[in-house]
Nucleic acid binder design. Structure first.
Length: 224
DNA sequence: GCGACAG
DNA sequence: ATCTTGTCGC
């Protein structure tokens, strides 16, 4: 695939303070809009694992029609930014970009194993990558970064608003009965309702939806 | 100042 | 995230 062209590109060699300034500058660019499911042929799951001083980004692209894996990629390199709650994108995106460039084509939608809008500055990893690629993106996190939610019913598909500072920033979604929920939030160019619908549709028999689940296996184990 | 804190 | 075996339950 040709070199990736990023919108609003910026340096990744920044201090935590500069990183926060960049997030505040780009956060207003996030757009919440309906997802055109008819134009969504492929969805890419992305995940990053860390081993010592090495990071490994993995991407698995699924065809929505039959959920068949049609492409995948891995990129490994040195850790360049520490894990700082709220600044995860500066640790993972530098590894995700080169992995994306190995794909035959960019997937129509991106599903991240992280938060999107449910972030202290409303600009989590899913928002950041979505804005840079100007593509639909959503975050499906395993645990909460910010916000709280009320009781969640037991059946698969049950939801509860994730609220932070009085604002609904995401939704707790039960993707499997009897299992802790995942936390869905918009990344870019998608509505929260559509993000939840897509996540539920891609959650087959595990807590995590297929794109993210497979990407996690690929980055952690090195193979599917 | 204290506690929380995606991966 | 990562370190790690067995074990409870559908």
């Amino acid at each position: 695939m040709p070199a990736l062209h990023l919108h609003h590109a910026h340096s990744w060699e920044v201090s935590p303070r500069d990183a926060i300034a960049i997030q505040k500058r780009l956060a207003p660019l996030v757009r919440e809009e309906p997802l055109d499911f008819d134009a969504l042929d492929t969805v890419g799951g992305l995940d990053v694992s860390v081993r010592g001083d090495q990071v490994r980004a993995a991407i698995v692209v699924l065809r929505l029609a039959d959920l068949v894996v049609i492409d995948q990629a891995i990129w490994e390199g040195p850790v360049a930014f520490p894990y700082v709650p709220g600044l995860l994108s500066f640790r993972e995106i530098p590894a995700v970009i080169p992995a994306l460039e190995q794909l035959r084509a960019l997937p129509d939608g991106l599903m991240l194993d992280a938060q999107g809008y449910a972030h202290p500055r409303r600009f989590g990893l899913a928002c950041h990558l979505g804005v840079l690629l100007d593509r639909p993106a959503l975050g499906v996190a395993k645990t909460i970064l910010v916000g709280r939610h009320g009781a969640l019913a037991e059946p698969k598909g049950s939801t509860a608003d994730l609220v932070h500072h009085g604002e609904v920033v995401g939704q707790a979604l039960r993707t499997r009965e009897g299992v802790k929920p995942v936390f869905v939030s918009i990344g870019h160019r998608v509505t929260l309702a559509d993000a939840v619908a897509l996540t539920l549709r891609l959650a087959l028999r595990y807590k995590l939806p297929e794109p993210t689940r497979l990407a996690h296996r690929l980055s952690y184990k090195g193979a599917l």
